[in-house]
């Protein structure tokens, strides 16, 4: 009995060893490296002992770090908000108003635009939002505006638009799944007990789908904080986010210790904000199984 269990355990380890080795070498090891680098003494192209916390002290002394971190948080929270608020009705429509046999097709269609490379999609957004781009020329032609809006010149706004579009399917899916799990008789019960459809949504559907909403929030929020491509391509590098700052520290200034310290601090902030979302999730999961 004991030996057969041991054999099973060995088989189990063998089966998960490829991903385990992968995770160890490509996730844990780099992470540990960054953590160690962040407390080493760095200079232009060199890094070494002694251990120091001066890299972190630097983050508090120079206002640029805080303002870029705040800007990153602002952009990613705005993207998260826009994405989730727009994704919810889409998920709701597919879950409640599309016949069961066509739901898979609808989800498939929703993901189709995202088969294109992200870089190409960003380039297309430049064409759409840019000076005398598609938005401008359309609005001028129908006489809504006289001067081009040139939305692209507003780096933050165009980044929020681009990223929200990029992460939309990732937000639709978890919300869709949570909506699918809602027992439809609960909605009838809500109406039966005297509530309108809207109030039933607010009192029954929304709380029951909050776990899906929180999952969508995390899925969108965490990667967008660290997004590096969009500020480069959309903002032309003029509106750097925290990832761009890390990149320039690491590769241009070549102070890997300082770059690592920014990365660790950013991870900490993202971790804290995510924790708040997770706790919110617990709060809403608390009442159900």
């Amino acid at each position: 009995m004991a030996s057969s269990q041991g054999k099973e355990a060995r088989t189990g380890w063998l089966l998960i060893s490829p991903p385990a080795i992968y995770a160890l070498l490509l996730l844990a090891a780099p992470l540990a490296t960054v953590l160690i680098y962040s407390v080493l003494t760095g200079g232009r192209g060199e890094i070494g002992l002694p251990f120091t916390l001066s890299n972190f002290a630097e983050l508090f002394q120079k206002p640029i770090y805080q303002s870029v971190m705040l800007r990153s948080l602002y952009v990613s929270l705005a993207v998260t908000f826009v994405t989730v608020v727009l994704a919810y009705p889409i998920a709701y429509f597919v879950s409640f108003h599309v016949s069961p046999s066509k739901k898979a097709l609808w989800l498939f269609l929703i993901t189709i635009p995202f088969w294109t490379s992200y870089v190409i999609r960003v380039a297309l957004w430049r064409t759409i939002l840019g000076y005398e781009g598609i938005v401008d020329s359309a609005l001028i032609n129908i006489g809504v505006i006289n001067e081009p809006l040139n939305i692209l010149s507003n780096g933050m706004l165009s980044m929020i638009i681009t990223l929200s579009h990029a992460y939309a399917p990732f937000a639709v899916l978890p919300i869709f799944v949570s909506l699918e799990k809602v027992d439809r008789s609960l909605l009838e019960a809500g109406q039966d007990l005297g509530e309108s459809r809207l109030m039933t949504f607010i009192r029954v559907t929304l709380p029951l789908t909050m776990p899906g909403v929180i999952a969508a929030v995390l899925i969108v929020f965490i990667p967008t904080v660290g997004d590096y491509v969009t500020p480069e391509l959309i903002g032309g590098g003029k509106v750097p986010l925290i990832a761009n700052l890390i990149e320039s520290q690491m590769l241009k200034i070549r102070d890997q210790a300082q770059g690592s310290a920014i990365a660790v601090a950013a991870m900490f902030v993202v971790g804290m904000v995510s924790l708040v979302f997770v706790l919110l999730n617990r709060r809403f999961l608390g009442g159900q199984k």
Binding site: S185, A189, P207
Partner: peptide
């Protein structure tokens, strides 16, 4: 008012 077959008790 209705008593549903699944009872439709609000789980939250």
């Amino acid at each position: 008012n209705m008593v549903f077959q699944s009872y439709a008790i609000f789980p939250h």
